[in-house]
């Protein structure tokens, strides 16, 4: 039977919610079309992780275990992918959009002579391929695209689909894999600025994002206070990641991450299209900006016109009352 294969992203042993969203979608498509939905985990502890994925009900969970996968590196990952795909031969391979999956998507497609669709927000099967929607032009418009052949490899924006648990007794199959270090064409020397156990920005329910308006320490203190009060993640506009105020991995937008939290609070962000490209799908958007004509207000559900240094303190106080009651 033809297979839809979902790659499960894992970081530090934790399964990325966004890849379970993709798996949920693939399950649904498999059911509708009488196909099989499988999952693939490539991790030093893939078999352990597999247990956590069972709740989402893929038929088979393929695992590739090797210490080399502790950190992301494209050469071994591509080799593992190729080995797995040789064995599984799926029609569709779907990833959650992450920097790691985007790193290999093109090369993998070229290697497999496969069609590639990056960063889709919706996808469905056709007789001969996959049709999908992709935000383009800095997410100002949506394009309807189609791959015309199998295999098709795609990455899916986080937040595009809901998680659906499914109790199926998934079978776990380990794929034999070995990697000779001498095949490493590139070397990972170091990882810096890893965000550790902070809340994962792309999966947070609440995001407080700081822009140039909050460029000094006092501004950041307020932003941090607000984020921790709401148990949210901190994000930033390019103005602040570029200035080195926040770690570049916190950048939201066309170049950075795409987020779609329940609540997004933009603090001192003007709302340039490249920023909006990464957050317009948030459920509720709050904006604080002293310029009443800032474009961010065009998409904000609740716009607060004012100086953030004057608005945030009472706002935090008011929210505290609500949270504590």
């Amino acid at each position: 039977m033809s297979t839809l294969l979902t790659y499960i992203s894992v970081s530090d042993g934790k399964v990325k919610r966004s890849s379970l969203e993709v798996l949920s979608r693939c399950n649904q498509l498999a059911e509708e079309n009488g196909l099989q939905s499988d999952a693939l985990i490539i991790d030093p502890k893939a078999n352990e992780v597999a247990v956590k994925v069972k709740a989402y009900g893929p038929s088979t969970i393929y695992t590739v275990e090797d210490p080399i996968f502790k950190n992301h590196l494209n050469t071994p990952l591509l080799k593992a992918m190729a080995t797995a795909l040789d064995q599984i031969n799926p029609n569709v391979l779907a990833f959650a959009s992450t920097e790691s999956s985007k790193d290999i998507l093109g090369a993998l497609a070229a290697n497999r002579d496969a069609a590639a669709l990056a960063d889709v927000s919706e996808f469905d099967l056709t007789n001969t391929g996959v049709k999908a929607k992709r935000p383009v032009m800095a997410a100002k418009i949506i394009s309807s695209v189609e791959s015309t052949s199998y295999p098709t490899i795609l990455t899916v924006r986080s937040g595009s689909y809901d998680l659906i648990e499914k109790s199926v007794d998934s079978e776990v199959k380990e794929i034999a894999f070995s990697f000779d270090e001498s095949d490493l064409k590139i070397t990972l020397k170091e990882i810096i600025g890893a965000t550790g156990d902070k809340i994962d920005l792309s999966e947070a329910e609440t995001v407080v994002a700081a822009g140039r308006g909050a460029k000094d320490e006092e501004g950041q203190k307020l932003v941090e206070e607000l984020a921790s009060l709401l148990n949210g993640a901190i994000g930033a506009s390019r103005a602040l990641t570029e200035a080195g105020v926040y770690d570049p991995s916190l950048q939201i937008g066309q170049t950075g991450k795409v987020v779609s939290p329940q609540l997004y609070i933009a603090v001192g962000i003007s709302g340039a299209i490249q920023h909006v490209a990464g957050m317009a799908n948030s459920k509720v958007i709050v904006a604080i900006n002293k310029d009443p004509d800032a474009p961010i207000f065009d998409i904000a559900d609740y716009g607060m016109v004012g100086d953030l240094y004057e608005v945030l303190p009472p706002f935090i106080e008011e929210l505290k009352k609500i949270v504590n009651s």
Binding site: I141, S143, V145, E146, G303
Partner: peptide, 28 residues
């Protein structure tokens, strides 16, 4: 291997309410 069939507007996100005035007031 891929073709673009068509383009459509993004479902428009309407501007909600904009609050101006005393910081304490709008914060509340």
């Amino acid at each position: 291997k891929t073709i673009i069939n068509s383009y459509e507007e993004k479902p428009e996100r309407k501007a909600g309410e904009k609050f101006e005035g005393e910081p304490e007031e709008i914060a509340r």
